[in-house]
Each structure stands twice: as structure tokens, then as C-alpha cells.
Amino acid sequence: MADPVLQLADVNVYYGAVHALRGVSLRVDEGEVVTLIGGNGAGKTTTLATACGLLRPRSGTVTYRGRDLAGVPTHKLVAQGLVMAPEGRGIFPNLTVEENLMLGAYSRRDKAGVAADLRRGFELFPRLAERRKQRGGTLSGGEQQMLSIARALMARPRLLLLDEPSLGLAPLVTQAIFATIDRINKEGVTILLVEQNANMALRHSHRAYVIETGEIQFSGPSAELRTDPRVKAAYLGEG
């Protein structure tokens, strides 16, 4: 069997004395959309930050395409295709839309490819094209989310980590964002998606992990979890 794209094995992460991840293990295989769902403060953002090297596990290993990531700085991972669109979108308000997008391609040297991807990004999100000279801080929440995803795509990710892309968005915009996630995945990008909107996340992913208080509770194919009574009760507001 091929190496998973991303694998966390028995990872423990602390913030000072706070034990934020307790023996977390998960894997993401090539071509998958895997979602990580859980309540506030469950450890979802911490998991993603650990996956891309912003946080270092006190014990356990993180491997990306078969390589241990211990000691590899985050900025080098971007060039290897491990890209994160952070929680809260992380738009640089003082930079224009276009500058934000170009920063996404910061690690790339292929000018022609970058220019082509910029055009593709504008095709994917025509709204951004209209606002390309506008400062990032002047965009609406939904537009900022589009910019955040488009910017991450500028790095040509092989594994895209998305932290709550639907946060604070109207239902229609949320649907558009998830449609984009489907489309990106069909084009060959593997995705690890963190969501509180469990309903949408389970509809648009292959497999799912449920995390609470820093521990993975259970996992399985998303279609199965959608009918799982534990999930229904806690995350789908049913039962």
C-alpha cells in the first residue's frame, strides 16, 4: 500500500501545561477528502497546526508523504505542497487581493505557471477578479474566504488543510465554498478539512474523524457517520 499523504501517529501536543492533543492518530490518503469534526476547543486547529509544523508534538510523529516532519520549518513545507488556509482566513488586510494571491505563490519560481494559476483563481472566483486591486481588509467575510482558498491554491498544494472554511458564512456562500472544495478535490488535491458544520463536512468528504478534548473519539466513512447515532446527537442536532 502506498504511503499516506499525511499521517499523525500518537501525537501529543501541549500549550505550556495544557495538554491539547492526547495521542492523536490519523491518516489522509492520496485523493481523499478527510474531515475532522468536533466542538469548540476540541483540538481541531491544534491538529492542523501540528500537521504543518507551526506546532511541534512533544511525542509522536507527523509524516508527510513518508517523510518525518520533525524539524522541518513550515515555510519549507509549502514548496513541497503542504498548504494550509488558516482559521479566520488570515487575509493580509493591508495587501491588495492580487498581492494576497501572489503571496500564496511565494515559494514558486515558475512565473508562467503562477500567472496561469492566477487567471484560474480569478475564473474560479470571479468576485476576486473584480476586486483584484482592492485591499484584502475591505472584502466581505465570504469574499475573504474565497480569497483564502484561492491563495492556498496558488501554492499548487498536493495536500490542502482547510480550517473551518464555512465559519460565519451565509448558507448560500457555504454551499459555494463546499462546491469549490469538491471541485479542487476532483482536480487531484488531497484535502484535510476541519469543520464545525458537521452536516456539510460529512456530505463533502470520504472519511471523517471525530475529536473531543484532544482525543479522537471515533472515525469512519463519512456516509456511515452521518447515520451514526452518536454523531447525530452531538453534531447534527438530531436525535
Partner: peptide, 24 residues
């Protein structure tokens, strides 16, 4: 310039700059 944009990005938010591949 690209490097100038990286500097402006760092001045706003180093953590996100790092996620863009900027060597902070």
C-alpha cells in the same frame, strides 16, 4: 517586489506569512 510583500505580510501576521512559505 515579492520580498517587499513578504515584509509587509510579516509585519501584519507572522504566522500566516509562514503559511505562505515566507521564511520569517
Amino acid at each position: 517586489t515579492r520580498t517587499g510583500a513578504a515584509m509587509r505580510a510579516c509585519s501584519h501576521d507572522m504566522r500566516t506569512a509562514r503559511l505562505m512559505g515566507v521564511n520569517v
